[in-house]
Design a protein around this nucleic acid. Structure first.
Ligand SMILES: NC(=O)c1ccc[n+]([C@@H]2O[C@H](COP(=O)([O-])OP(=O)(O)OC[C@H]3O[C@@H](n4cnc5c(N)ncnc54)[C@H](O)[C@@H]3O)[C@@H](O)[C@H]2O)c1
Ligand SMILES: NC(=O)c1ccc[n+]([C@@H]2O[C@H](COP(=O)([O-])OP(=O)(O)OC[C@H]3O[C@@H](n4cnc5c(N)ncnc54)[C@H](O)[C@@H]3O)[C@@H](O)[C@H]2O)c1
Lengths: 211, 211
DNA sequence: GATCAACTGTTTTTTATTTCACAATTTTTA
DNA sequence: TAAAAATTGTGAAATAAAAAACAGTTGATC
């Protein structure tokens, strides 16, 4: 199968956001200009765009408007996807607030917690239910995408509940490294902020050795 | 130079956290067991550990206690590193609250914002100053690591201020893709949560095609 | 309308990362 | 004490990703 790498998908997402900003200024953009905006190279940009089936014009570049809609057609779900988030502490709340209404095709429809002070309230305009209700709500709302930002120790159980309820994709912000069997065919994105911090600390002292 | 890849550093960070939990239960661990805990493979684990100069014992494995301190010696700064964070909105506050006091060698000493309601207060026990004061504070406190979680449009200017003030490593949570010249020799970690979301959405529909 | 310059799309090459495979080592067992 | 079993450390092979190279277009120029 002509499978597209995760790296390419990430870059396409970034290209689109950069192009949106550019759109105000001009009509066309060259691969080397987009590369600069996205911190990449012209060759890499052209290679990524190959997957879209959209072709630019030599000496003219890519029509920004068309390129954006082509990336959107490629990346975005055809219909609106419902998304849920489990664990609405500091991070969960930040994610909710930020993404609420931001991506038209991704709709944050519910969040879940076990904290009785949160259950029953609305957080950033999104209703918060008790974790117990999650499986039923996921099925009812046909949710395919789940975000976990609970405490670490609850991660595994939550992911199992999600998968059993039919979730197709999980984004895990906790430190717990989920291990999902291939046979489940669930996409997993592990975001390890702690590792990023330790990496930044490590390279703050070492990476300048390449001098 | 025997440079260690970013991927390896990330995994070492994860190994350490997993080992900390394991330590309560047992003394030794095999590469295949650690691999399972870290969602990796035995060969990958052994390869990563090669960099540490710590050797395990065939038929016995790695002494968890020693392995942890060896990873710490390798990853952690020798002395306490001061860290600052710029932009203390929802995300910045979550980061502050989470990391405050969590990593003994990384000390969050100050945060900066331009919101007058925040300047002059303490957030999660960390003093918040006006952005204007940043260069001076960074120099005074010998800060090497800076986190950006401001609004997107301020990112570039903030990074330039940081670099001019002597920061060695930047973690950028905003969507703006920073481009730091190689000659600056500043390590950059770009955390693009938006791309992660769009990736999760993309693969929720497509990745099961490998069936 | 021929020529030039500057781009694109794609093939090839290079580089980086992961996996494999196995000799060397150590413990266990007999 | 010798043989068997299991695990390590690492060179070599395989795979994945990025960069370079280049033929083919296209618009601009004369
Ligand atoms: N905040 C950060 O910067 C940061 C960085 C790295 C990792 N993380 C990880 O992200 C997760 C969330 O971080 P945070 O700062 O928001 O923590 P937090 O303590 O503020 O929030 C955790 C939330 O999860 C809820 N919760 C606990 N168990 C639950 C369960 N079984 N089901 C549903 N909800 C449950 C709690 O009630 C709370 O609301 C943590 O696991 C943390 O390790 C956070
Ligand atoms: N929250 C998320 O889940 C999320 C996800 C992806 C990306 N981001 C990015 O992270 C950044 C922060 O997100 P947030 O949700 O905390 O936003 P926020 O609006 O809650 O916080 C932004 C903070 O930055 C401050 N600020 C603005 N300009 C500044 C400047 N020049 N110097 C210092 N401080 C300044 C604001 O006063 C505010 O306190 C944004 O750029 C956003 O694009 C956030």
């Amino acid at each position: 199968m002509n499978t597209v790498s995760q790296r390419t998908i990430e870059r396409l997402s970034l290209y689109r956001r950069r192009l949106m900003v550019e759109l105000a200024d001009k009509d066309y953009i060259f691969s080397h200009q987009l590369a600069k905006l996205a911190n990449s190279t012209a060759a890499q940009v052209r290679r990524d765009l190959m997957h879209l089936g959209y072709t630019g014009v030599p000496r003219k570049g890519y029509k920004i408007k068309d390129l954006i809609s082509c990336i959107s057609k490629f990346l975005d779900p055809t219909h609106i996807e419902n998304v849920v988030i489990v664990g609405v502490g500091n991070l969960g709340k930040a994610l909710l607030t930020f993404f609420k209404g931001r991506r038209p095709k991704l709709s944050l429809v519910a969040c879940f917690d076990i904290d009785e002070n949160k259950v029953g309230t609305e957080i950033a305009g999104v209703p918060c239910y008790h974790l117990n209700e999650m499986p039923q709500r996921i099925k009812e709302l046909k949710v395919n995408i789940g975000i976990i930002s609970s405490t670490e120790n609850a991660t595994k159980a939550i992911s199992e509940m999600m998968i059993a309820a039919g979730i197709r994709s999980i984004i895990n912000f906790t430190c717990y490294p989920l291990n999902i069997a291939d046979s489940e065919n669930v996409f997993l994105e592990q975001i390890d902020i702690t590792a990023s911090f330790e990496k930044a600390a490590y390279f703050s002292k070492t990476h300048l050795k390449k001098l």
